[in-house]
């Protein structure tokens, strides 16, 4: 039972019709592996927020999924404008979203804060003009 599952999905900037595909695939894997329901929901909500961020802000990106018995790791790595001020981006309500993003039901400045709320650990690195890398980790042990 020392199985490690890894998957990689590519994400295209601006392609809202497909936004959520990677998160949906991740949800299917987690369900198949019988992961705790509450953990699945927190994981896929965080993944989906991150996936929407790539579609909304970046030019292209990839989502790496890794899971073993103890942890689930999702790395969202994009080529895009990056984040000038990560601290500011983490504040609820701060947004640089365009009207196209708002029409899709997003862009309220809640994505990154909601990812942080749902993930057990989250780490962001960004280089303005180059891209952003967000790593989220979930412990598979059920929270008491």
């Amino acid at each position: 039972m020392s199985e490690t599952i890894t998957e990689e999905y590519s994400v295209t900037g601006g392609d809202f019709s497909r936004a959520g595909y990677a998160s949906s695939q991740i949800k299917k894997i987690l369900k198949r592996m019988d992961v705790d329901k509450a953990i699945i929901k927190r994981t896929v909500v965080a993944a989906y927020e991150g996936e929407v961020n790539i579609v909304a802000h970046a030019w292209s990106g990839k989502i790496e999924f890794q899971m073993d018995e103890e942890q689930i790791r999702i790395i969202l790595d994009d080529e895009g404008p990056g984040i000038e001020d990560i601290e500011k981006a983490m504040q609820e309500g701060y947004s640089t979203a365009t009207s196209a993003i708002r029409e899709m039901g997003f862009g309220a400045g809640m994505g990154l804060p909601n990812m942080k709320k749902n993930a057990d650990h989250m780490h962001i690195e960004s280089e303005p003009g180059k891209g952003t890398k967000v790593e989220i980790r979930m412990e598979r042990m059920v929270r008491e």
């Binding site: 809202f16 019709s17 959520g20 929901k41 896929v44 989906y48 899709m104 039901g105 709320k117």
Partner: peptide, 30 residues
């Protein structure tokens, strides 16, 4: 606002919305 929907953590919730696009369905799925 799908961002708000994604912050609620109840089960068996009915979503009432005037936003009809693919992200509405994806948000419900997640």
């Amino acid at each position: 606002l799908m961002s708000d929907v994604l912050t609620q953590n109840n089960d068996h919730v009915l979503l009432i919305t005037g936003l009809a696009n693919m992200q509405t369905i994806r948000t419900a799925e997640m």
